[in-house]
Simulated scan of single mutants.
Amino acid sequence: MAGWAAAAALLLLPLFAVQFTDGVNWEMVDFSVFGAMLLGAGVSYELAVRMTGSSAYRAAVGVAVAAAFLLVWINLAVGIIGSEDNSANLMYGGVLAIAVIGAAIGRFQSAGMTRALSATALAQVLVGIIALAAEFGSTAPSFPEAIVLSTGFFVALWLLSAYLFLKAASG
């Protein structure tokens, strides 16, 4: 229940920000997408919690769901490669596809999830390397720092999740 209350509070934050600042210009579509993302993340975590009593497994799912949520949210809001309009950001959809397909192939079992999230971290690194090598988003003032920092951040999250799944598999 606390998680759903936190999700509702997160959805209310931009609503208040729209009322009191000029820096936040959300429309109904933005609220709908954000709400759908929160719902998807919440349902995913709820299903995982119901699957197992392992705290390591639950934490691993929480980290993976948070990483996926943040990756989508950042790309929709500002983009990692250049701006949110840069089509190179679509490569991050491939990162998420590897996570989802790997999880399904591993049947959501801890050992399979360890491999899936490790592969996801590798895919995240490859997207960063491709973006840097091809100079995608090079016109952005934050190039290449944004790509390097975000790649490191997300790789750390994917690997943390993989490690927690490994702990769940061994104990």
Rank of each mutant, 00 (worst) to 15 (best):
M1A: 14
M1E: 13
A2G: 06
G3M: 11
G3E: 14
A5F: 13
A6I: 15
A7Q: 11
A9L: 14
A9Y: 05
L11V: 08
L12C: 14
L15P: 01
F16T: 05
A17Y: 08
V18H: 05
Q19T: 03
D22P: 02
G23Y: 06
N25K: 12
N25S: 13
W26D: 04
M28W: 13
M28I: 11
M28A: 15
V29Y: 09
D30E: 11
D30L: 03
D30R: 02
V33F: 15
V33Y: 13
F34P: 02
G40K: 09
G42P: 11
V43C: 08
S44P: 08
Y45E: 12
V49I: 13
V49Q: 15
V49H: 13
R50P: 12
T52H: 04
T52Y: 02
G53T: 11
G53A: 12
A56G: 03
A56D: 15
R58L: 09
R58F: 08
A60D: 04
V61A: 13
V63L: 07
V63Y: 09
V65E: 08
V65I: 11
F69R: 07
F69D: 08
V72I: 13
W73G: 00
N75R: 14
A77M: 06
A77Y: 07
G79R: 13
I80L: 13
I80E: 10
I81R: 12
G82D: 03
S83A: 14
S83T: 15
S83P: 03
E84S: 14
D85C: 00
N86C: 01
S87P: 12
N89K: 06
N89H: 04
M91R: 12
M91L: 15
G93T: 10
G94R: 08
G94L: 10
G94M: 05
V95Q: 01
L96H: 11
I98A: 04
I98Q: 01
A99L: 08
V100L: 14
G106H: 04
F108L: 14
Q109N: 11
Q109K: 15
A111Q: 06
A111I: 03
M113V: 13
M113E: 15
M113Y: 12
R115M: 07
R115I: 09
L117R: 00
L117T: 04
S118W: 03
S118D: 04
S118R: 04
A119R: 00
A119L: 12
A121K: 00
L122Y: 01
V125F: 15
V127I: 05
G128S: 04
G128E: 04
G128V: 01
I129W: 11
I130H: 03
I130M: 05
L132P: 04
A133L: 10
E135W: 09
E135I: 07
F136Q: 09
G137N: 02
G137E: 01
A140H: 14
F143R: 07
F143Q: 07
P144S: 06
E145N: 03
E145D: 08
E145I: 05
A146S: 15
I147Q: 06
V148C: 10
V148H: 05
L149K: 06
T151A: 07
T151W: 02
G152A: 02
F153Q: 08
A156V: 02
A156Y: 00
L157W: 11
L157Q: 05
S161N: 08
Y163M: 10
F165L: 02
A169D: 10
A169Y: 01
S170K: 13
